[in-house]
Amino acid sequence: MSDVSSRATAEAAWVRVALTTLALAFVALFLLVPLAAVFWEAFSKGWQLYVDSLTEPEAWSAIKLTLLTAAFAVPLNLVFGVAAAWAIARFEFRGKSFLVTLIDLPFSVSPVVAGLMYMLLFGAQGWLGPWLAEHDVKIVFAVPGIVLATVFVTFPFVARELIPLMQAQGADEEQAAMVLGASGWQTFWRVTLPNVKWGLLYGVILTNARAMGEFGAVSVVSGHIRGETNTIPLHVEILYNEYNFVGAFACASLLAFLALLTLVVKSLVEWKIARAQAASLNRTREARLASA
């Protein structure tokens, strides 16, 4: 993606300026100003209080639990998402639209309902509740329930990022690889994965951000035990309800930071891949020239 564009593939300067301005105005109004408000509140009583809010033991345990939850939810949904995208974008089968709709469904379920569903399954009065209690397995009001609820709300991201992308690209390259004698896994690792890496990365970033920020569903299954089963978003709510606005917004700003951090990682990966690609592109060009 070079920024050097010929006249043929670029708009007039005024169009570019107008569009950019419009987009940036939208970003400013809907993203930058709310973010500024969060940081403004977080730092309204000074740096020291901000740091104190993040280092108190309850905040710290919430941070650890949130990271742990994301560490489970993201890989699980990553594997699922890639498998689903492969099945859906590369094969024709009956009921495909139906399957895709099912994958989308967790988005449209109110998070509170999501939590409620797990209570109906695993709660003491739920289907599996009595059996679980008998065997002393804790699902709800413990870490497994929080992970499950998080997996549910982040379920579709990776699959939904990959499917349109893989459809747009078509299967020609993979078929070519297979015809040339590559094994299925080789084709996947060498052809498919490099082609969809951006979509995959966006999917993972979204999954991760949402996994750490989820409130509604987790709130139902967490039990809110301070220092034990509170995630950062739940901790934020508690602080807010204690009129501790600085603490609440400090923890919220931490989540914003974590999201930005994933973007930094993304940029680094982007840069490395771009370098590697440039190198390999040069090689193929040379090869082409040589054969011509």
Partner: peptide, 11 residues
Amino acid sequence: VDLPFALPTAV
């Protein structure tokens, strides 16, 4: 762009 996901909805 990803901010709306990362911020807890209540925030």
